[in-house]
Design a binder for these strands. Sequence first.
DNA 1: TCATTTATTGCGAACGACTTGCAGTAACGC
DNA 2: GCGTTACTGCAAGTCGTTCGCAATAAATGA
Lengths: 137, 137
Amino acid sequence: MSIDEVLRARDFRVTRARQLVWEVLSSSESHLSATDIHERVHAIDDSINASSVYRTLALFSELDLVRESHLGELSTWEPAHEDEVIHLVCERCQSTTHFNTSTVDRLRAQVEEVAEFSPTSIDVQITGLCSRCCSTT
Amino acid sequence: MSIDEVLRARDFRVTRARQLVWEVLSSSESHLSATDIHERVHAIDDSINASSVYRTLALFSELDLVRESHLGELSTWEPAHEDEVIHLVCERCQSTTHFNTSTVDRLRAQVEEVAEFSPTSIDVQITGLCSRCCSTT
DNA sequence: TCATTTATTGCGAACGACTTGCAGTAACGC
DNA sequence: GCGTTACTGCAAGTCGTTCGCAATAAATGA
């Protein structure tokens, strides 16, 4: 289902701003800040305004098309993904990769049992050096 | 070792702003944003300016006296502690408790081995309902 | 105790990310 | 095409945070 179809299916208009924001988001390897997204969108079509980017991100967020994280100083955005995933943020090249492990599930179980806490969401952020940056120290 | 002694030992001056920021931070149960800290400091001594709070936080951060997290919309601060602690944030009463588990160590080992990532800090935040709020639903 | 030195502060202006109100534009249904 | 109105661009505004600079006060030594 393309972004156009998703929007139409939910009675939202298909606009160039929305198409471009989605294009930029889904073609990026790492998480992007709103400013990054605006820059990239602007490079393709300089008539798209920053506020449209913000409004589009807010809409996509409500439609659960994107996921906002607060990993660094700025919030960053990426296409939504289901799983509880760990974010590995490289402190040198700023790249963000995902790491999937059942340890997060174990964590949830432990917290429920031992701390008597009922979790709704788990956010794991690990900062450090990615393999590429680590090897060129 | 009091905050005064720590500062003197590292050749920094002991000032009212620094003392109050430390007092507020170390007597708080939960994480505080810079604005929160300023408000509380200001309530005790309204002559202390916001920029002093920011500068003090930056200093404390460099001295590893405090820990900054980027898990919410604003950064929040707390007295420094070991990595191996998980933050349990209750979404109803906003209280933050710490949970200590060796699972975090296991996570670190896994990430190093499987993802070839060399971690410097691990931040785990779990939001949900604390036992008290959960029982009164 | 007081004078000297200079780290630290308060203040105000500036910054950058983000939001908002409004008038114009363009997407969609007919 | 044509009308309706959801969206947009623009500009002004908000808010957390930073910065330059002159004034202040913490430490040191006499």
